[in-house]
């Protein structure tokens, strides 16, 4: 970084898992139908970066304007992240399946058709 300058390093962090993603009912991640592998995921994420950041800015403004105190806003922000981190959007060979995970609970107790476990 040259002296006296501000520099921004843009990054995309990515994940990919090919093949069976479940322990019982056989399903794979839905994203494998549209991405051939992690390099393609990372390339796409950087190419669409402006759109993703625009959505993040919309969510930030939405919660900032909500009639909630800071503690409530903190809980919503934390809970949303945790929820997404424990979800699986899968493909069973014929349709999309949305799964909410809880540790220690078998998968199929939480299998819901897409839309049955929506957060918003």
């Amino acid at each position: 970084m040259p002296a006296g300058q501000t520099v921004t390093l843009d990054l995309a962090l990515g994940f990919y898992r090919q093949g069976k993603a479940t322990f019982n009912r056989e399903m794979s991640y839905f994203y494998t139908r549209h991405f051939t592998g992690l390099p393609q995921v990372l390339e796409y994420a950087l190419s669409e970066r402006a759109r993703y950041l625009a959505i993040a800015a919309e969510r930030d403004a939405e919660l900032a304007q909500a009639p909630l105190n800071d503690e409530q806003k903190f809980l919503i922000a934390h809970a949303t992240r945790s929820y997404y981190g424990s979800t699986q959007w899968l493909w069973d060979g014929s349709r999309s399946v949305w799964v909410g995970q809880r540790r220690g609970i078998p998968h199929d107790e939480h299998v819901r058709p897409h839309g049955g476990h929506a957060f918003f």
């Binding site: 970084m1 040259p2 002296a3 006296g4 300058q5 501000t6 520099v7 921004t8 390093l9 843009d10 990054l11 995309a12 962090l13 990515g14 994940f15 990919y16 991640y29 839905f30 994203y31 549209h34 991405f35 995921v41 990372l42 796409y44 994420a45 669409e48 970066r49 993703y52 950041l53 993040a56 959007w89």
Partner: peptide, 14 residues
């Protein structure tokens, strides 16, 4: 469904 997380690092070298 893109399995990616955007991030950035901004450095202010004054």
């Amino acid at each position: 469904r893109c399995p990616s997380v955007p991030a950035q690092v901004t450095f202010r070298n004054t």
